[in-house]
Design a protein around this nucleic acid. Structure first.
Length: 258
DNA sequence: ATGCCGCCCGTAGGGCGA
């Protein structure tokens, strides 16, 4: 049975609702993880998605952050936030779908290396290491997908020299990403697509999308048991070219479940 | 150059994203 999971930072679910609905109709993934809802849970358009056959688990918040998971299959064991970490920002949501633990993440941006937000990002990532390890122990089949706000290597950066040492590519951030790989997770896109240069985010400014000045910061990390079933992972650039787009575009992973 | 663009809140323009 083919089974597809996707992730998309929509930068406001209110503004992007119609684009997400149209994209779901076309691609019909089994699961879609959303980040940056920028709206409280009660403002989430549950009914519009239900009409397309999708259930939703939502952890929203006014103005900033907010994550959700849409699924064509029953959602079980819905769990927002990281246990034991008092974070006021809604950035994590876990569910179980078809026997797979699916974790939607919106990792902090960090602003710049001298910012308090960067300190928060590194503290948050330290907490997330323990969380990811505990999930993997409890669920051999795990997928952690979302906006990581980390470009893991220079192959994920349009101009590595210009970006050198900056937030999203700094050594401490990349070290945390590598720790996830060391836990046993695979970067599905990199594992299945070789050294292909492809981006999932382009700045709104400076015609960055038209000039393909992007970063690959949205990722689908999978446990070994899921990696065995992974067939293709690709980035759908099309939504980034729509009118009034998100600055991110979807990443899709296709599995073949036994 | 600390802005470029877009969204939120709220109804002007600052905070924030990446």
């Amino acid at each position: 049975m083919a089974f597809a999971l996707a992730t998309w930072n929509v930068n406001s679910i209110r503004v992007r609702q119609d684009q997400v609905l149209a994209w779901l109709e076309e691609h019909q993934p089994d699961v879609l993880a959303l980040q940056e809802l920028k709206a409280p849970s009660e403002a989430f358009p549950y009914e519009a998605f239900r009409a397309l056959g999708y259930e939703a688990a939502v952890s929203g918040q006014a103005t900033y952050n907010g994550v959700a998971i849409l699924s064509r299959h029953p959602l079980e064991a819905i769990s927002p936030d990281m246990p034991g970490y008092a974070d006021t920002q809604k950035r994590v949501l876990a569910v179980t779908v078809a026997g797979i633990r699916v974790v939607c993440v919106y990792i902090p941006n960090g602003a710049s290396l001298d910012s308090d937000k960067y300190t928060y990002k590194l503290e948050w990532l330290e907490q997330f290491m323990g969380y990811a390890e505990s999930i993997l122990e409890a669920y051999p089949q795990t997928v952690i997908l979302g906006d990581y706000n980390i470009a893991p290597s220079d192959a994920d950066v349009h101009d590595p020299k210009a970006w050198q040492g900056q937030v999203l590519v700094s050594e401490p951030e990349r070290a945390y990403f590598k720790r996830l790989l060391d836990l046993g997770f695979s970067d599905a896109f990199r594992s299945l697509s070789g050294d292909l240069k492809a981006y999932s985010w382009w700045d709104y400014r400076m015609n960055a999308f038209k000039r393909d000045l992007g970063l690959r910061i949205d990722h689908i990390l999978v446990s070994a048991a899921v990696m065995e079933k992974a067939r293709t992972c690709f980035i759908d650039k099309l939504p980034r070219g729509l009118e009034r787009p998100s600055d991110h575009t979807p990443v899709i992973l296709e599995l073949e479940l036994g």
